[in-house]
Amino acid sequence: MTTLNIVSLLPSLMNTNGDAENATVLQRRAEWAGLEACVIAVDSPADLPGRVDAVVIGSGSDASLEAVRSKLLTIHDELRTWGTDGIPILSVGTGWELLSWGIERRDGSTVEGLGILPGRAVPRDGRATGDVVVASPRFGLLVGFENHARDYVGAEGSPLGRLRSGTGNGRGSGQEGVVMGAVIGTHLHGPVLAKNPEFADHLLASMAERAGLEYVAGPAAAVADAYAAVARETQLAAVGAAASVTEA
Rank of each mutant, 00 (worst) to 15 (best):
R124M: 09
A211F: 11
G174T: 04
H187V: 03
P159G: 05
G60I: 08
L72C: 08
T2I: 14
I40A: 02
A128G: 12
E31V: 13
G190D: 04
S173F: 03
G144H: 03
R150E: 06
I40N: 08
T129P: 00
P191E: 12
K195C: 02
G161V: 05
A228I: 02
L35K: 09
L236Q: 09
V52T: 15
A30K: 06
L114M: 11
D62T: 12
A135N: 02
A237K: 09
S70D: 14
N169L: 07
E112R: 14
D125P: 05
T129E: 13
I6G: 02
F139Q: 10
R232Q: 12
G185S: 09
N196P: 07
A217K: 09
I116A: 14
P191L: 06
D107Q: 09
A248Q: 04
G93N: 12
R106H: 03
G157A: 15
P45C: 07
V192N: 02
D131H: 10
G34T: 10
V55W: 10
V55E: 08
P159Q: 14
H187G: 01
R51I: 10
I103D: 07
V56E: 06
G95E: 04
I87P: 01
A128M: 13
T84N: 12
Y215D: 04
D125A: 15
E247W: 07
G168W: 06
L72M: 15
R124S: 04
S59W: 03
S8N: 15
G126A: 11
L79C: 02
L142P: 11
L35H: 06
G50W: 07
V223P: 00
P197H: 01
L26R: 11
D77Q: 08
W101V: 08
E97N: 14
A33Y: 04
V25F: 09
G166R: 03
L141H: 10
S12G: 00
S158M: 03
G174A: 09
G174S: 03
G60H: 02
L48V: 10
H187A: 06
G157H: 14
A243E: 15
W32N: 12
G172V: 09
A243N: 14
A20S: 15
G154I: 06
A30I: 04
G185V: 02
L163C: 00
G177T: 11
A231Q: 10
A217G: 01
A228E: 06
R164S: 01
A67I: 14
L193R: 13
D85H: 09
G102K: 14
G115H: 08
V245W: 03
E176W: 01
L65M: 04
L160I: 01
L13Y: 13
G172T: 06
S206F: 00
A33G: 03
A128Q: 11
G115D: 11
V7A: 05
W101K: 15
R69H: 11
V133C: 13
L13N: 08
S158Y: 02
T110Q: 13
V245D: 09
R232M: 00
G108W: 11
R162M: 01
G60W: 07
G130Q: 04
H187F: 07
S44W: 04
A37V: 10
T234W: 05
G218D: 04
D77T: 12
A23W: 05
W101T: 13
L10V: 08
G119N: 05
A205Y: 00
G144F: 05
E156M: 00
S59Y: 04
W101I: 07
P123R: 06
